[in-house]
Each structure stands twice: as structure tokens, then as C-alpha cells.
């Protein structure tokens, strides 16, 4: 992993993002079916992939949790830290999806919160993974912490898809979500750009995840070497230099 460095798929993301953004604003024409402000339909490009990737990363967390508890190398703390990194990335995605969705809801329905099933289920999802980090912070012993939180990550990954099905049955909840826009006949240009964004966002989040894994591996090797001066270097890398990755860097 160390030798790979900046791979091709990472370098491609910058130009891809520039190209897709330009396409989204100049090639895709605003949608008129059911949107108060046709330009606001462009939320599809950012918001929908974020929500999907949030769920995806929570499943990745569940996968690593199963590997930690039941897999061949069970008890390997590296799997446990992967669970927590995947949860961090997933939490960042779901938070971004929620906030972008609230802005859209303000434009579309004149209220940032309207008890839409998607809003409620993503809120519960966020609460599950905030609880995950709450549990993580309350145990000090690494092996025990890893076992408890992995068990909870599995519980969360099982509950998450059920929530999507269950939440619309709540009395308080009624849907306003323009689902038919995505499922039926989305303009082919729009579909193409949307898929492109999904792929690029997947790349960005995978990159974030990979960096976290490498940083953890590096820290483990440094502390193995046991040189206290090296710890300072790792701390310097650890400190985020930009504000662009709120939530993902923490």
C-alpha cells in the first residue's frame, strides 16, 4: 500500500469533477416536471449520491465489523478501526445529504423540515451512528471497545434498510419526495451526469477512507518503533489543514 502513492484513479477525480460540474450547469437543462424552481432540480446530482453513499459506507462498516467479530483474522484491531473510519465517512455523507436536502426543501416546500420519510429515516440513521461514536468514546480498553462497537455496527447495518421500509408507516410522516423523477424517465443527459457524480463521489469518499486507514497503519508502525519524537510528526499530519472536510477529518 505504501508504494502506490497517488494512483491514477485519484488524479482523475479533479478533472472529472470540473467536467461534471460544467456539464451539470451548461449541458443539463433545468427540469420542469414538479419542481417549483426548475434550477433546483440540480440537487439530484449532489444530494442523491450522498444519501446512497452514506448507506453504502454504513454497509462497509458492517462488513468490516463482521470480519472483526467472525472473520478469519478476528480480533485484529485494524478491522475495528476500519469500521470506525467507514462510519465517519458514512456519517459525513448522511449529514451532507441532510443539509443539502433541507436547503432544497426550503426552496421547494418553503420549510426546511416537513417530516418526509426520507428525512426521518436519515435522521434516525444519523442518530444510530452518533450513538456508535458515543459507545466508542465510553470504553477505554481497545479490544473490548472494538467488540462492543462492532456488534453495534452490525446491529445498525441490519436496522438501516429496515428503517427505509418502516419509517413511512409512522403516523407523523408523509411523503413529498419527488421519487417519480428518479425512478421514471429521468432525462438521459441528467441520468448520465448523475451516474458520473455518483462514481466521483465514491472515489472521493474511498480516498478519504484510504487516507484514514494509511494514517492509522503509520501510527501503529511508529508506536511499534517506540520513538516519542516520531509521534510529533504523526500528530502534525493528523491535524487537518483545510476546513473542506468537516466531519470526515475528525
Amino acid at each position: 500500500m505504501n508504494r502506490r502513492g497517488l494512483a491514477f484513479w485519484k488524479l482523475l477525480q479533479g478533472p472529472a469533477m470540473v467536467g461534471l460540474t460544467l456539464l451539470a450547469y451548461f449541458w443539463a437543462k433545468p427540469l420542469n416536471n414538479g419542481f417549483q424552481v426548475p434550477e433546483a432540480a440540480r440537487i439530484i446530482f449532489w444530494h442523491v449520491p450522498m444519501a446512497m453513499l452514506g448507506l453504502l459506507w454504513f454497509f462497509v462498516a458492517g462488513y468490516h465489523a463482521v470480519r472483526f467479530l467472525f472473520g478469519r483474522g478476528s480480533g485484529d484491531l485494524r478491522s475495528d478501526s476500519r469500521v470506525s473510519f467507514a462510519c465517519e465517512v458514512g456519517l459525513a455523507c448522511t449529514l451532507l445529504a441532510t443539509f443539502s436536502g433541507m436547503i432544497f426543501a426550503q426552496v421547494q416546500w418553503r420549510t426546511p423540515w416537513n417530516w418526509d420519510p426520507k428525512q426521518v429515516s436519515i435522521l434516525v440513521l444519523i442518530m444510530i451512528y452518533v450513538a456508535y461514536f458515543g459507545l466508542r468514546m465510553s470504553v477505554d480498553e481497545p479490544q473490548l471497545r472494538a467488540r462492543l462497537t462492532s456488534a453495534y455496527a452490525i446491529l445498525g447495518a441490519v436496522a438501516a434498510p429496515l428503517l427505509m421500509y418502516v419509517v413511512p408507516h409512522l403516523p407523523q410522516v408523509q411523503t413529498l419526495h419527488p421519487t417519480q423523477v428518479l425512478t421514471g424517465g429521468l432525462d438521459s443527459k441528467w441520468r448520465l451526469i448523475w451516474m458520473g457524480f455518483t462514481v466521483v463521489f465514491l472515489g472521493v469518499t474511498a480516498w478519504l477512507f484510504e487516507l484514514r486507514v494509511r494514517l492509522a497503519a503509520l501510527e501503529a508502525r511508529r508506536s511499534e518503533a517506540g520513538d516519542p519524537e516520531d509521534q510529533v510528526v504523526v500528530e502534525a499530519v493528523r491535524r487537518p489543514s483545510g476546513g473542506a472536510t468537516t466531519g470526515a477529518a475528525g
Binding site: K10, V204, W207, L215, V237
Partner: peptide, 25 residues
Amino acid sequence: LVWGGLFAYLIGTDLRLRRLEAELD
């Protein structure tokens, strides 16, 4: 601005990690 910042951060961190990994090796 947002994406430029994010990519600068990602590339910067990646390169720094790479250097530290090489150093350790």
C-alpha cells in the same frame, strides 16, 4: 473553492503520508 480546497487537502495529505511511509521503510 470547496472542491479545490478538498482536493488540495486530499493530495497534500496523501503526499505527506507517502513521504512518511517511505521514510519509515
